[in-house]
Amino acid sequence: MKVFKKIVDLQNALFEERKQGKEIGLVPTMGALHEGHASLVRRSVGENGVTVVSVFVNPTQFNDKNDLKNYPRDLEADCALLESCKADYVFAPEVEEMYPTPDTRHFEFPPVSTVMEGAHRPGHFNGVCLVVSRLFYIVRPDRAYFGEKDWQQIAVVKAMVRQLELGVQIVECPIVRDDDGLARSSRNSLLAPDERAIAPAIYQALKSSVTYAKKHTLKQTHDKVVADINKVEGLDVEYFSIVDGNTLQDVAEWEDSPYIVGCITVYCGKTPIRLIDHIKYKEA
Rank of each mutant, 00 (worst) to 15 (best):
A155H: 11
A155C: 08
A155N: 05
A155I: 01
A155T: 01
V156A: 10
V156G: 08
V156S: 08
V156K: 03
V157Y: 01
V157T: 01
V157A: 02
V157W: 00
K158R: 15
A159M: 05
A159R: 07
A159F: 00
M160V: 11
M160G: 13
V161E: 15
V161H: 02
R162M: 11
Q163A: 15
Q163R: 14
Q163F: 00
L164F: 04
E165R: 13
E165W: 02
L166C: 08
L166Q: 14
L166K: 07
L166E: 15
G167L: 02
G167Y: 00
V168E: 04
V168Q: 05
V168K: 03
Q169L: 11
Q169M: 07
Q169E: 15
Q169V: 08
Q169P: 00
Q169T: 11
I170R: 04
V171I: 15
V171Y: 05
C173N: 08
C173A: 08
C173R: 06
C173K: 05
P174F: 05
P174D: 10
I175G: 03
I175K: 12
I175D: 05
I175P: 03
V176K: 13
V176H: 08
V176A: 09
V176M: 13
R177C: 01
R177K: 02
R177I: 00
D178P: 02
D178S: 14
D178W: 07
D179W: 04
D179L: 12
D180P: 07
D180F: 07
D180E: 14
G181Q: 10
L182I: 04
L182S: 01
L182T: 04
L182A: 00
L182N: 00
A183N: 03
A183H: 02
R184P: 01
R184M: 15
R184K: 15
R184F: 13
S185W: 05
S185H: 03
S186H: 09
S186P: 06
S186Y: 06
S186N: 12
S186R: 12
R187N: 10
N188D: 07
N188M: 08
N188I: 02
N188K: 07
N188A: 09
S189L: 07
S189I: 11
S189H: 05
S189Q: 11
L190E: 03
L190R: 12
L191M: 10
L191Y: 06
L191D: 04
L191A: 06
A192L: 15
A192W: 04
A192M: 14
P193K: 11
P193R: 12
D194W: 08
E195N: 13
E195I: 11
E195K: 11
E195W: 13
E195L: 14
E195T: 07
E195S: 10
R196S: 14
R196A: 15
A197I: 12
A197N: 09
I198E: 06
A199Y: 07
A199L: 03
A199F: 10
A199V: 09
P200H: 03
P200G: 02
P200D: 06
A201H: 14
A201E: 13
I202K: 02
I202L: 02
I202V: 06
I202C: 04
Y203G: 03
Y203I: 02
